[in-house]
């Protein structure tokens, strides 16, 4: 179920820590607390590892093509400019 899995990946403690950062607490301390929490929290460490895996695949994915005609418009622009 979508609702169950969403609950399983959500961490209230992490949200609290991030709120503390927004509330003006010293950011160095907040950043350290978040890093420590993620290392210890099974939910967060699992989700962060999965996010990293997904992003590694995203980075390796083939580049989508340029929007239609953009390359030619750029070329026209560069060739029109006195520098090009």
């Amino acid at each position: 179920m979508a609702g169950e899995s969403q609950q399983a990946m959500t961490c209230g403690r992490l949200k609290e820590l991030l709120r503390a950062g927004a509330a003006g607490e010293e950011l160095e301390h907040v950043a350290q607390a978040i890093t420590g929490h993620i290392e210890r929290c099974p939910t967060c460490s699992t989700a962060e590892t999965a996010l990293s895996t997904m992003l590694a695949r995203y980075r390796q994915a083939e580049q989508p093509p340029l929007p239609h005609d953009l390359e030619r418009r750029l070329l026209d622009l560069l060739c029109r400019s006195p520098e090009a």
Binding site: M9, T10, L14, K15, V30, A31, I34, T35, L51, M54
Partner: peptide, 25 residues
């Protein structure tokens, strides 16, 4: 430290937004 906190906020937002895929992986 500000960069780190922004990064964690971004990652949490993406964890939520992409949750079915994160769960699958």
């Amino acid at each position: 430290p500000a960069l780190k906190v922004r990064l964690h906020r971004a990652r949490l937002a993406l964890r939520n937004a992409l949750e079915p895929y994160i769960q699958n992986i």
